[in-house]
Design a binder for these strands. Structure first.
Lengths: 336, 336
DNA sequence: ACGAATCACTATAGCGGTAACTTTACGAAA
DNA sequence: TTTCGTAAAGTTACCGCTATAGTGATTCGT
């Protein structure tokens, strides 16, 4: 095994504690002793034992990140943001995949807490705060920040997009482009899905446009799942001439369905998504979308969590950050 | 803080050691005592302290996974596979992003080793085994498995695709489709890039087809980077009528360049990629590709690493697994 | 000149477990 | 009866590190 503080101490004829303090730059060690210790440490390739340190300090410098799906590039981007922020702070990020399953998620978070992570960031699959997960979280004193999805009744730290604004921005854009019959492929019944739907409705209402109930199709929200939803919309007697999709993967599926039906995008139907995933520009028709700065969401959440952790035991007053959305126009919606 | 073994022991009037043994199902504890301990543990919501346990057992049940880019869906898929295998075994997977930078990678792996992970899986950015990283890895006794990329001279555990076969499969397919002038957008100078290039050359040679030097363009290998490479190929006097691209993201960029030049895919130029990333079906032109079972690579590497870890100190003889590729034909190459 | 403060360092006591030995009790074998 | 074996505990000694409370020697204030 590698060198321990004890070895350095013996070699130098000082006490173990002197070594410990010297290595941590503690003030009551003379400059000369410190230098001797540091040199000897380097010679022996000493590496502090995090485990032992954690046992006594009760800090692991590990944080958990729980997301529903690594393959979804929104979450991959969030993860990247989180890592970029925490890395330089000396934290390790442990990513857990909940597979969009609330129970699995609760179980995973328990595992993380059992590992004594210093904090957790969660894109939660829970729809309501009255779920097992939150009982678990509140019992322990580990700080946590929710991202992207806000379960109803949730009062704690949160970082996400302004979903209603996203819905309005997208819908307004379609209206601007001259669309009269605008449909929506909605997402799951969690906050981003509902918020974007609200925004869609508000935008239509403001412009005095109709939003027939059957213009809101609820597909799923995974790869190509927009395909099924769009096919249903295409069968309506009054076919829509614009679709706002919950996110880019859904929009990609929608475009596939439209083209397959022999129609054109944006000519017959204009399409806009949300999320600006990295491959949006490469789709069948380059996809207009609402950028929500995914990696900024990750970074912001990381920063907030870091503050909570530093704040020692005193829980900070709940903070909510909503990142501003931005319209990105590409070919799929350009009609003028 | 939560309950410790000591609390259970005191409550039950037994020794700490009895509790420890009972909870781990040790044989020299009577069935009745064991039951009493387990019950009391449940009542107190006892959770074992991993940190303390790790300190003495020298096992953390954490493994590192180092990849160049989480956003690249190949690696996300690998990560998913790794997680799926290790989760049920009680391991936590810590993912580190090397950003394709060899030094950053070495640094990150050092951090992981400092954290006493039980093993590491690496999609390495190193091109040669004579690099700092391998000195570090060999000094410690932590087992590791390389995936996807094999640095020259590397002799240890490895799991990846059969790159030469991938190159041949793709190229043969283009030949089958009647392409006569087949170009290659090659990847970086690491094993998959070189292997696929070799496969491309062998396939052409076998069919007596020319492979002019300027038909091999080296772009990068990131999102849309195939775009630049393809533009160069389009300027050649003898324009290619088929392109095998290092991977799907490169192919996506290539298609973009081709369409932009007013040409058609696959009519004027057939395109095939490799990797079968999840959005390949949704691109401008649905992309033909070589599937390399990314998540199987992850799972296999995880299984291999788990074996190495279980094998206690005795290092296993180096094992290499090459996953078989599979042709997936979509529209981008269908000419018949 | 005498107590207080300062400096640079040390001794001790854990953190929450586990490994490796003992010990104890009790029935079976010699 | 004595010895022995075995089941079911208990003791002790760490794992590598940090927090806390000292220690002795020098410096300082009044």
């Amino acid at each position: 095994m590698s060198a321990r503080m004890k070895d350095i101490a013996q070699d130098l004829g000082v006490s173990l504690m002197t070594v410990s303090k010297a290595l941590r730059g503690h003030s009551d060690i003379s400059e000369e002793t410190r230098r001797r210790v540091v040199n000897r440490a380097r010679e022996l390739h000493y590496r502090p034992n995090w485990i032992a340190r954690s046992l006594v300090t009760r800090r692991t410098y590990m944080v958990g990140l729980v997301i529903p799906d690594l393959m979804h590039s929104f979450f991959a981007e969030v993860a990247k943001g989180v890592g970029r922020k925490f890395g330089p702070l000396g934290y390790q990020v442990v990513i857990s995949n909940s597979e969009e399953n609330p129970e699995a998620e609760a179980r995973q978070i328990e595992v993380l807490l059992d590992r004594n992570v210093d904090g957790v960031i969660i894109a939660s699959a829970q729809s309501h705060i009255r779920s097992e997960l939150f009982r678990i979280l509140e019992k322990r004193e580990t700080p946590y920040v929710l991202i992207d999805r806000m379960p109803t009744g949730f009062e704690g730290h949160y970082v996400g997009g302004r979903d209603e604004e996203i819905g309005m921005l997208a819908t307004n854009h379609l209206i601007d482009q001259g669309c009269k019959r605008i449909a929506h492929l909605r997402g799951p019944v969690i906050s981003p899905g509902s918020g974007r739907l609200r925004g869609y409705r508000r935008a239509l209402a403001k412009h005095g446009l109709d939003a027939p109930l059957d213009y809101v199709a609820s597909g799923l929200y995974e790869d190509g799942s927009g395909y099924e939803g769009m096919r249903k919309l295409l069968q309506l007697k009054k076919r829509p001439d614009g679709v706002f999709c919950y996110n880019d993967p859904v929009a990609a599926g929608a475009i596939k369905a439209i083209l397959e039906a022999g129609l054109t995008v944006p000519g017959d139907i204009a399409v806009i998504g949300a999320g600006n995933v990295h491959y949006s520009d490469l789709l069948r028709v380059p996809l207009s979308t609402i950028d929500q700065s995914s990696s900024v969401i990750g970074e912001t959440a990381a920063e907030l969590l870091a503050q909570c952790i530093e704040a020692a035991k005193k829980p900070l007053p709940p903070k909510r950050v909503f990142i501003a959305p931005r319209l990105v126009v590409r070919e799929s919606s350009r009609r003028k």
